[in-house]
């Protein structure tokens, strides 16, 4: 049963990439079952959670894959989706799909760090104006949200401590916002803080949590909701700390 082993391995690999990069469980379930069915397995038994996937097929060894890290990268989810569609239309063989998924970590394009930081700055300053802030705070918000995101990015990529990155970024943003207002550069530190923490907001985990819960994946939904809430609380703690003591 060499063939069945390869099918299970490929399916699990696709699932691992999707969950690692923040796909919702209904979609993961759908894609994995599609790959398995198109490989000729009529009743695949797949159990997926946010921290691991198990899959077994009659007549072959069951396999388990654990998922250690989670981040948000929608490009890779889209690519797994594309390749599973191509496989369904018989444009790719199973071995090609397996190779493609194995190399996806290197081949998928990422935005360069300076683009990410620039984008984070734009998110902050445009939202600050849209929420009714003053034009005097426009430039400080741009700088602070870019700086905050850069710190968040650095800590996330260098160290494996998830919630510290949000806390420290929020701490720096809050401290510098108050400094800007005290030194007369900016007008309202509230608006600067609201704008600057926006790029850090855990939008994907929280949206996914609700979708998972409504789709019946209660375990994953609760895990995701906890993750999103912890990130939000970490940001809030950072800001509260600054407001309380300065």
């Amino acid at each position: 049963m060499k063939d069945a082993d390869l099918i299970i391995e490929t399916t699990l690999l696709a699932g691992k990439i999707m969950i690692e990069n923040g796909a919702d469980m209904a979609r993961v379930d759908d894609t994995l079952k599609r790959i398995a069915r198109n490989s000729g397995i009529t009743d695949p038994a797949i159990f997926e959670t946010t921290t691991g996937i198990m899959m077994s097929v009659k007549g072959a060894h069951a396999q388990v894959v654990s998922i250690q890290r989670r981040r948000i990268d929608l490009e890779r989810i889209a690519r797994v989706n594309d390749i599973s569609r191509a496989y369904q239309e018989k444009k790719k063989t199973l071995l090609e799909v397996n190779q493609y998924l194995k190399n996806l970590e290197q081949t998928a394009p990422d935005f360069k760090v300076y683009w990410l930081v620039l984008a984070a700055g734009i998110v902050g300053c445009t939202l600050e104006i849209m929420y009714g802030g003053s034009w005097r705070d426009f430039l400080p918000t741009f700088c602070l949200s870019a700086l905050g995101y850069y710190i968040f990015y650095l800590i996330n990529t260098r160290f494996r401590v998830k919630f510290a990155s949000e806390f420290i970024a929020a701490l720096v943003i809050g401290f510098l916002a108050i400094f800007c207002v005290r030194s007369g550069i900016a007008k309202s530190y509230g608006m600067i803080i609201i704008g600057s923490v926006m790029p850090l907001v855990p939008g994907v985990p929280l949206t996914n949590a609700v979708r998972d819960l409504l789709a019946g994946h209660i375990l994953s939904g609760l895990a995701r909701a906890t993750e999103g809430l912890l990130s939000a609380v970490a940001i809030g703690m950072g800001i509260a700390f600054v407001l309380r003591f300065f």
Partner: peptide
Amino acid sequence: KPMILFNVPSLVPLVPGGQAYRAI
């Protein structure tokens, strides 16, 4: 393409940042 590509970024202006900030 998956739907998540379109709806997650589009909701960022609606995030209740102002209310959360005031609560904190």
